[in-house]
Amino acid sequence: MKTAQGIPLDYYIWLSAALFTIGVLGVLYRRNAIIIFMCIELMLNAVNLLLVAFSNYYNDAAGQVFVFFIMAVAAAEVAVGLAILIMMYRNTKTTDINILNRLKW
């Protein structure tokens, strides 16, 4: 149950669970759109870390390859997301998500 470097795999799982949870917390806790967005990135990174740890454990490069895809997607997502954000900001002059309640929940 250890990675090739002798660090218990569990540690990585816990670490990435913690990071993931912090990301989720951030999404739920904050209102600033950009910070929420960053917290989502944090979630993705927790996943990446986990994948790399497992990949190391299994000696399987597929895990790392998957991380590449996640990174590529994250970059693409950021591009679109920030474009949306800026577009929105142009119209509303704010990034507080609570301003966005003209459409009711």
């Binding site: 990585y12 990446n48 190391n56």
Partner: peptide, 21 residues
């Protein structure tokens, strides 16, 4: 996290991670 990648023997990924993120 990049440091963790290096620890996990994924240097390439670590650098790519730094570059991308």
């Amino acid at each position: 996290i990049a440091g963790h990648y290096v620890l996990l023997n994924a240097q390439f990924l670590a650098v790519v991670h730094v570059i991308v993120y």
